[in-house]
Design a protein around this nucleic acid. Structure first.
Length: 1113
RNA sequence: GGGCGGUUAGUUCAGCGGCUAGAACAGUGCCCUUACAAGGCAAAGGUCGGGGGUUCGAUUCCCUCACCGCCCACCA
């Protein structure tokens, strides 16, 4: 294979570089893997599938470190399962990310070309966004590849591509037909500067000093004893122009009682410092009963009698209504109702059938509904309204108050709540009047709807429950259906605590607003009669008949909903009833569409919420809704159903917690609704990466890390290992961020101050470099600093350690002759290594199965570094230079490295693949009992089994003792400052069992600590001048006749005695405690006793040594 | 306002009822011991955020306070 002919048999392993060159390795193996098509998966009835769909990254920009974590973990799972023999499929793709992407492109447009989308027009803007998408999608896919992600690239999807579009249209159509989609009003965050709606998360709040205005509305024709005014309060007086009612509570006395009860309860459980405050509120409440309540009761009666008040300035009579929204315990107890500009008021308006008057133009000026104030901006209108009210004596008082004002993150201008028509997906039960006549026999929730029978051997998703599910949707709605899947365990969440946020959120069963006032996205497939169409028509009913005829002609393609109950208000404030048919079309190319448009219907200009298409991702990417309709496409041999049936439900979803509600819940919901089964069996929520200050990383803060910078400096393997190493079960992980000076490569800690600067002077070399903020030519001309984190250094060093250990093995495989190994030939360190290898294999396998990535990474790190490198490789060195014992050493060494590489491969793919191929050249056949040629790539090498027959507790115990003694000897050497080359001699006083265990290891003491044993056993005496220590039940005397620093030994022994005494005292106290000895478990007490004895022995021997040393001074 | 997490060595994290609370990095001392100085060996560094409780025993479980963070809701 030419791809790895970079080293030939004639080249010696000694020529391999001393440091792992990650760059070339990454390039080489990425190309190789792609050429070999290892990542491609096709349905295969003989193998179990393991499927992951990628959380599609937004095409708004390049991937950041959070994505790197997310995708690394997915790749670790996929690679592990692939090695374990599963037919592993990882579906890649990207998300169009509606608002976010349109916003970036629009911003660019404005900055670079001073053009707005209105000037450009819909089609051209969408073209521009597609161009952007092409660039960034490509970049994202490259980034994933550079990280080593083993996605099935042939199946790459984009949420706006034709496959996904069909799934969206089919879903929307079904929901529309099932009356799960309806049209309603909703307040949107209107950015008057950009003239667009922005999402909630693009809104930031700023606390500013504002006012609370109390305004009087005159009562019309007040009767004797009735109040002349009703007083209301607002922070936004100009909205009064759109008021259509004033509300008072329908039972103010009861409401006050309830408020009082609540306060009493709160008082009972409140901490001392809050009590005074609550008591004050209670006092206020009592006073209110005297002063406000009688008024409110009167007003309530007036409201019930249909009395009205006069809206000042507009001179418009508006209703006095009784509604629970008005809280008698607050303000005057009455509240103005502006249904078109406040969400709560909108609800009241709906309940009380109030007119809704929109007083705003899209540009934020007042429209004709504002009468004399038309044309003014909100700001000016506010001033004018207040002035006018004051001059009419209707301004009761003005309070200062801090108010929070919503601002658009994009234009930094204040947001206006703006009432707009929106489409919603219904989350609650379907049993209400609106849907009763809908599609009673809609086949909602059938398992794999319309999918042909599955071939034998493939599990049909959940047939026993399908009828039940059909009913459960009918009776309890989409949200409940998705909740049930988690409650009954069809979907399992790891860590389990996150199931709570999922259930809490769905439990609210809020309807899902799915329309967005944007141009980038799936256009809503609904057509309505245009104004032109309506005025050109001879009669509306005539058109309605024609539309119904169209539906009868294409019953599968056309669905109609009538909204005769929709009320909209004209400029006068009078209600008018508008009859509007909304027609939903299923197919993207349909003759029904042409016929409908000929009738004067136009498509809804809005697009669907991004999450609508993301919600379908697991099944849409796997081919749902199946082969295209014959009329659409001639390709009836499409294997789509097979794919869906085989790979769906997917195995696990790996994502971060902030989209559990927005995305995870909705995928479950649509999966159940469309396919009849959950989209994934497991959900793994990984931690979020924060910077050193505990803040979320983001480009807008300047603390974001580009994985490519990390890859360039440390390598993809180090990136991956570092990320896996920190994927613990905690909610967040912190990562200090640094600039790397492009001149001197020194790192500069990133602070909240310097991270926003366009240029920084390197404190090391004094030269300037630029950052992501550079925009001026003099800044951009400077070299840019990479933004990285030192936390990847550990991982990079680990990779290098692995590389060098591999080099060592390769260098010592000269003359390797494949042969099976007789267990009797194994040296003690071989048996130890094989035992440890089996144990670690079990640990790593188990950790990965339970999504404990950090545990797996740590186990491998410790094992590879401390046991394989520091002990096994060191110990095997002697045998390698001995012709007789060399072959077995080589066999076990090759076998061990082989196993270690496989265990590491999912986390560290490039390095392991590189070594795998090198190893294949030196040891083309390996194994202990049975020899076999290694797999042609480690990607498809079988996952190692945890072979319990190699596990050997006796050997592991022997090693523990050996390591303890070795450590003690090294410590003496360090303390006494004895040069490594100078040999030392030691004697060990211990029992005969220990002698048997340790005496055979004499050669290793010599090799690894330059220490020669002179005597073993119970009778061993201390040499005249010695350093001593106790370890593993042995007393060790190091003969220091030639070179002793007596003072150092005395100091050390004194300290040791002190420590032992303190420890001993604590232990004695514990054992003297009768309740401990009688109540604690017997084994715990026994262990304590043993330890006590051991401590006494150690103290005795240390004290003796100390006394001995003192005599020498 | 509701919910969920966190607070352990200078830093980043493990440990989650009982061995003298561990690791890595940084800092310290010694060593270029031919796989690796991105290395080796070793020492030092911690009243486990504060206070209460449960228990023979608490870093670990419960309550509470403080601080930090995240999510959701609301703010006439």
């Amino acid at each position: 294979m030419a791809a790895y002919a970079f080293i030939t048999m004639s080249t010696s392993a000694i020529d391999l570089p001393k440091q792992f060159e990650h760059g070339p390795a990454q390039e080489r193996w990425t190309a190789h893997w792609l050429a070999k098509n290892y990542f491609h998966a096709e349905p295969d009835q003989n193998r179990q599938p393991f499927t992951i769909v990628i959380p599609p990254p937004n095409v708004t920009g390049a991937l950041h470190l959070g994505h790197a974590l997310n995708n690394t973990l997915q790749d670790i799972l996929i690679r592990t399962k692939r090695m374990q023999g599963y037919n592993a499929l990882w579906m890649p793709g990207a998300d169009h990310a509606g608002i976010a992407t349109q916003a970036v492109v629009e911003k660019r447009l404005l900055e670079e070309e001073k053009t707005t989308r209105h000037q450009l027009g819909r089609e051209k803007l969408v073209d521009r966004i597609w161009q952007w998408k092409e660039t960034y999608e490509k970049r994202i896919l490259q980034q994933l590849q550079q990280m080593g992600c083993s996605c099935d690239w042939n199946r790459t999807r984009f949420t706006l591509d034709a496959v996904c579009a069909r799934a969206v249209r089919h879903t929307f159509f079904r929901m529309f037909k099932d009356r799960l989609i309806y049209r309603g009003k909703r307040l949107v965050n209107w950015d008057t500067f950009l003239q667009t709606a922005v999402s909630d998360d693009e809104v930031f709040h700023e606390t500013v000093k504002g006012h609370f205005w109390h305004i009087r509305y005159p009562i019309i024709d007040p009767q004797p004893g009735e109040p002349e005014f009703v007083s209301v309060a607002t922070t936004r007086p100009e909205t009064m122009l759109g008021d259509t009612a004033v509300a008072v509570h329908p039972d103010p006395a009861a409401a006050l009682d309830r408020a009082e009860r609540e306060l009493q309860e709160k008082l009972a459980g409140a901490p001392q410092k809050e009590r005074a405050d609550i008591q004050k509120q209670l006092d206020d409440l009592a006073e209110r009963r005297q002063t406000v309540l009688p008024q409110l009761i009167k007003l309530r009666d007036m409201a019930n009698a249909g009395r009205k008040v006069m809206l000042p300035l507009m001179q418009r009579p508006i209703s006095l209504v009784a509604d629970e929204w008005a809280k008698p315990e607050l303000g005057s107890g009455c509240v103005k109702i502006t249904p078109a500009h406040d969400p709560n008021d909108y609800e009241v308006g709906k309940r009380r059938s109030l007119p809704m008057i929109n007083i705003l133009n899209p540009d934020g000026t007042l429209n004709e509904n504002a009468g004399a104030y038309k044309g003014l901006t909100i700001k000016k209108a506010r001033v004018q309204v207040v002035t006018d009210l004051e001059s009419q004596g209707l301004l009761e008082r003005v309070e200062d108050r801090e108010i929070e004002i919503a601002h658009s993150d994009r234009s930094k201008t204040p947001i206006e709540p703006y009432l707009a028509d929106q489409w919603f997906v219904k989350m609650r039960d379907l049993d209400d009047a609106e849907t009763a006549g809908g599609s009673a026999n809609a086949s909602v929730g059938n398992a794999l709807r319309g999918v042909p029978e599955a071939p034998i051997g493939v599990a049909t998703p959940t047939s026993p429950t399908e009828r039940h599910r059909g009913r459960s949707l009918q009776s309890s709605g989409l949200a409940q259906m998705a909740m049930d899947a988690v409650i009954d365990g069809r979907v399992q969440v790891h860590p389990p605590r996150y199931a709570k946020s999922y259930l809490d959120w769905l439990g609210e069963k809020r309807d899902w607003p799915v329309s967005r006032q944007l141009w980038w996205g799936h256009r809503i497939p609904v057509w309505r009669l245009s104004d032109e169409g309506a005025s050109a028509a001879e009669s509306i009913t005539g058109i309605q008949q024609q539309v119904r005829a169209l539906r009868d002609k294409y019953p599968e393609e056309v669905s109609i909903q009538s909204f005769s109950s929709l009320r909209e208000a004209g400029p006068s404030g009078r209600q008018s009833i508008m009859v509007g048919d909304s027609v939903c079309l299923r197919g993207e190319i349909s003759s029904a569409q042409a016929e409908l448009e000929a009738l004067g219907f136009v498509q809804d200009p809005d697009v669907l919420d991004t999450w609508f298409s993301s919600a379908l991702w697991p099944h849409s990417t796997l081919g749902w809704p199946g082969p295209a309709l014959p009329s659409d496409d001639s390709d009836n041999e499409s294997p789509d159903w097979e794919k869906l049936r085989y790979f769906y439900p997917t195995s696990v979803l790996v994502t971060s917690r902030d989209i559990i509600t927005l995305w995870v819940a909705r995928m479950v919901l649509t999966g159940l609704y469309n396919v009849g089964d959950v989209p994934f069996r497991q959900v793994y929520i990984h931690p979020k990466i924060l910077d050193a200050y505990g803040e979320t990383m983001s480009k807008s803060k300047g603390n974001g890390i580009d994985p490519l910078d990390v890859i360039a400096k440390f390598g993809a393997d180090a990136l991956r290992f570092g990320l896996a190493h920190m994927a613990t079960e905690t909610q967040d992980v912190r990562m200090p961020v640094e600039f790397e000076c492009p001149h001197c490569q020194k790192t500069i800690e990133q602070t909240q101050k310097n991270r926003v600067l366009p240029r920084i002077k390197c404190p090391q070399c004094g030269q300037d470099f630029s950052t992501q903020w550079a925009s001026k030519p003099e800044d951009t001309a400077l070299p840019r600093a990479a933004v990285i984190s030192e936390r990847f250094e550990v991982a990079r060093n680990f990779c290098n350690k692995l590389w060098n250990a591999s080099r060592f093995v390769l260098m010592n495989l000269e003359g390797y002759e494949p042969a099976p190994v007789d267990r009797r030939e194994l040296a003690v360190e071989d048996r130890w290594m094989l035992s440890r290898l089996a144990t670690v294999t079990g640990q790593v396998t188990e950790s990965l199965d339970g999504y404990h990535f950090a545990d797996a990474a740590r186990a491998l790190y410790d094992f590879a570094w401390d046991e394989f490198c520091s002990f096994y490789v060191e110990m095997v060195k002697t045998r390698l230079s001995d012709t007789e014992s060399r072959p077995v050493a080589q066999h076990v060494l090759a076998y061990s490295l082989d196993t270690l590489l496989r265990l590491l491969h999912p986390i560290v793919p490039f390095l392991t693949e590189e070594v795998w191929h090198l190893l294949a050249e030196y040891a083309p056949e390996r194994g202990l009992n049975k020899l076999a040629a290694p797999a042609e790539s480690i990607i498809i090498a079988p996952w190692p089994p945890a072979d319990a027959t190699f596990q050997n507790a006796e050997i592991e115990a022997r090693f523990a003792k050996f390591q303890a003694l070795l450590g003690g000897l090294r410590e003496v050497r360090a303390r006494q400052n004895i040069a490594p080359k100078t040999a030392i001699h030691f004697a060990v006083r211990c029992d005969s069992d220990t002698v048997k265990l340790l005496q055979p290891m004499e050669a290793y003491f010599a090799a690894m600590a330059g220490a020669t044993a002179t005597a073993w056993g119970t009778q061993v005496q201390s040499p005249a001048l010695s350093a001593n220590f106790t370890a593993a039940g042995c007393e060790v005397f190091v003969d220091l006749a030639e070179h002793i620093d007596v003072a150092a030994e005395i100091a050390r022994n004194e300290k040791e005695v002190e420590k032992l005494q303190a420890h001993l005292a604590a232990k004695e106290k514990k054992l003297a405690n009768e309740s401990f000895t009688s109540r604690a478990p017997a084994d715990v007490v026994a262990r304590e006793r043993e330890q006590l004895q051991e401590l006494r022995d150690r103290l005795a021997s240390t004290a003796a040594a100390l006394a001995d040393l003192r005599k020498r001074i």
